[in-house]
Nucleic acid binder design. Sequence first.
DNA 1: CTTGCTCCTCCAGTCGCTGGAGGAATTAGC
DNA 2: GCTAATTCCTCCAGCGACTGGAGGAGCAAG
Lengths: 169, 169
Amino acid sequence: MSGATSEQAVPIGTASRLSGVKVPTIRYYEEIGLLRPPARSEGNRRHYAGAELRRLAFIRHARELGFEIEAIRTLLALQDDPGQPCEAADAIARARLTEVEARIRSLMALRQELEQMVASGRHGVVGECRVIEVLADHGQCAHPHHHPPAVPGRAATAGPPRPKGRRPG
Amino acid sequence: MSGATSEQAVPIGTASRLSGVKVPTIRYYEEIGLLRPPARSEGNRRHYAGAELRRLAFIRHARELGFEIEAIRTLLALQDDPGQPCEAADAIARARLTEVEARIRSLMALRQELEQMVASGRHGVVGECRVIEVLADHGQCAHPHHHPPAVPGRAATAGPPRPKGRRPG
DNA sequence: CTTGCTCCTCCAGTCGCTGGAGGAATTAGC
DNA sequence: GCTAATTCCTCCAGCGACTGGAGGAGCAAG
Ligand SMILES: [Zn+2]
Ligand SMILES: [Zn+2]
Ligand SMILES: [Zn+2]
Ligand SMILES: [Zn+2]
């Protein structure tokens, strides 16, 4: 038996090396239904061939660009159905771009604050340390990297919007 | 009794509004030992006065600048001991600055890729969508936002370094 | 005295993995 | 053929930094 007709199928370790996705992560993607369960060998080992390897590379690439798992799920579903209009895919990418832009702006403000903390030459004792000083008093910050934390007397209606989960890259 | 000698102590909800830190988060900070357990009222409610409120504002500010909990723990310990040299505090801030700079560079590369995906005018059908196309093939990316995912033939020795946990702001 | 708010504790869930335990199967070398 | 090393399997707990719900107690106003 076993005529080796298809593109050669590789075990999970090789798929991991080829894609740059760790072995447990590949299994995790299968578990959450992002990757279809691949064929198994006699000894119950997963074997990945062309299509699945391409899917895995797609996922990896999308993750590197910071797309969430749910977004990738949608993108993969779209990819499987090439006749559909691609509005949804474009919207996902545009939304990600908007997020990235916002994040960059935010980080640039942070960078400036941090630079001013560390760049002010002389430090020596904690009691006179600019780092500690600024952290203790946001008033010393040049830019409002956040809306001020409701100084005594008034109360903000809502907490600051904080993103969930981590983002690669 | 109760001559109201100290700065007026407030319950947790007010502390939350004053600091911008959510109530469960304040309790969480206490649980992990970042905030000292405050005095309690007769009815077992937490009451926060000046020192603790200042500590809370410090934590909030540091979190907004993206310092990790462990770093904040160190910074708070330093703050409590103003005679010590502030090298440790400065090092923490410089390390954070370096991280932020790296992150900005990385996000700017991502931004460029995403811009090229979405900006190429005409999309219509998934089969011809540039978003899907680029995701399926990193070779179409202008810049190597990562070292290439080991194209068939060679294997990378280590997976890509990915940061853990989330970062605000 | 009832209504409605705040507070309490405990605990499970979020996101996207990561890694260990304990065992089976395959491969390499002799 | 036999052993040793490696790879694979499943299951499950843990990470960081919260977030929020359940179920109940306290407390101030109408
Ligand atoms: Zn200093
Ligand atoms: Zn600030
Ligand atoms: Zn498109
Ligand atoms: Zn790419």
